[in-house]
Write a protein that binds this DNA or RNA. Structure first.
Ligand SMILES: [Mn+2]
Ligand SMILES: [Mn+2]
Ligand SMILES: [Zn+2]
Ligand SMILES: [Zn+2]
Lengths: 138, 138
DNA sequence: TAGCAAGATGCGAAAGCTTCTCAGTTGTCT
DNA sequence: AGACAACTGAGAAGCTTTCGCATCTTGCTA
């Protein structure tokens, strides 16, 4: 049950938290901004403040339930933490996002960090391009 | 002469543009925020508005003179466009930046984009970690 | 089950970065 | 030098995100 995840995070089970987690779970492969989540709540008739959406997303991030991404759109987007790290391919025309993992790249990154004496903590790799569909309707 | 670069960009040679370009040239391997550039101008006694700094940096970016980077600090940083692409290693403690290029990673990225039918346009790879100095004074 | 304290919420205000507006100024070309 | 488009500084405004606080809930205890 979802509620357990919230409890495990040391947070009280409240309606805003249940609804927001539900939206993220039902969003499939999408990457939603706080505003997206907020609008979805309004659509569903849930009267939850935008500040709460930001607060909850940040708390979920702290608890490892969601990941915050910084694509170059000016706002952060969130997705459920699948547990497995992955990087992103973003279409600059339609914003479609494709996820991928490349062991070779991961390995080279570790090597590079080590080579420069850095204790690696995280990394962000985003490839921007034009997807097949958008290239077709050029 | 610097002025030629400005002219080639189709821009008038003005004091703000000369000073800003000069600061970027003299900044070495640093990556400066608009605010950094603005403060440097003030220090040098140049009375140039912050809005102008932003405007000029954006114009220089459009002209391919500078590159804008989005590290996760909440503000953009700028550096002179060396002509050669490179990626970044950023210390999360002291913000030190190390630049690198890894042919293997570049190659894998192209392959991944192709594999997903994307016509690659750009990419951003930033590795976050703790540098040697910061690890020492832990 | 009623009561309580810690924790959460919604709202509006405010912060931080960046862009816009506009009246006045300056560079460029003749 | 003169004309005109381009540019500038200052402040207002825009956007995303966070804060402050009075009010309401949840989870626990008795
Ligand atoms: Mn993802
Ligand atoms: Mn660089
Ligand atoms: Zn597309
Ligand atoms: Zn450091």
């Amino acid at each position: 049950m979802d509620n357990q995840q919230i409890k495990d995070a040391g947070l009280k089970v409240t309606r805003p938290r249940e609804k927001i987690l539900g939206i993220l779970e039902r969003s499939g492969r999408r990457h939603l901004s706080a505003e997206d989540v907020y609008k979805e709540l309004l659509t569903n008739g849930d009267d939850i403040g935008l500040a709460t959406v930001y607060r909850v997303l940040t708390q979920f991030e702290g608890a490892g339930l969601v990941c915050r991404r910084h694509f170059e759109t000016g706002q952060s987007v969130f997705e459920l933490n699948s547990g497995d790290h992955h990087d992103h391919l973003v279409c600059v025309r339609c914003n479609r996002v494709v996820e991928f993992v490349d062991p070779m790249i991961e390995e080279r990154q570790s090597a590079i960090a080590a080579q420069h004496g850095f204790h690696i903590e995280d990394h962000s790799l985003v490839i921007y391009g034009v997807c097949t569909d958008c290239a077709a309707n050029a």
